[in-house]
Amino acid sequence: MSFFESHFIYGFFVALLMIGLYGAIAKVNLVKKLIGLSIFQTAIILFYVSIGKKDGADIPILPYDHGHSGHMLAPMAEQYINPVPHVLMLTAIVVGVATVGVALAVIQRIYAEYGTVEEDLILEKIANS
């Protein structure tokens, strides 16, 4: 397998991360900045999940026949993909939703205070007051 074939997947995550970073820096609208940060986070989550992949391996759920638990073969490590990144990202996704909620609440508060979510207008209002 060529180097490109085995490593091109990381390029996708880097590209997604660059899009998110650009959005978080360049956009003036606070909601768009937040979307940029969420894309950045998604890139990292995808990267973590991709680490768990093993060639030719199955999802990390053992085949289980209800009521016939005695007939199960001992699982081999190379048969199942790595479950640890899945565990880490499972919690990170839900925590990500909650933190995006907090960010939106802060943006609503800023909107109530300044009447706008455009960063330059907010800075202008702070400078004038």
Binding site: S6, H7, I9, Y10, S50, I51, G52, K53, K54, D55, A57, P60, P75, M76, A77, E78, Q79, Y80, I81, N82, P83, V84, P85
Partner: peptide
């Protein structure tokens, strides 16, 4: 990508599986 002996997929993860 997908190698069986990548650092994330040895030691602890094998013990878990």
């Amino acid at each position: 990508w997908g190698r069986l002996d990548s650092p994330a997929s040895v030691n602890l993860s094998d013990q878990y599986i």
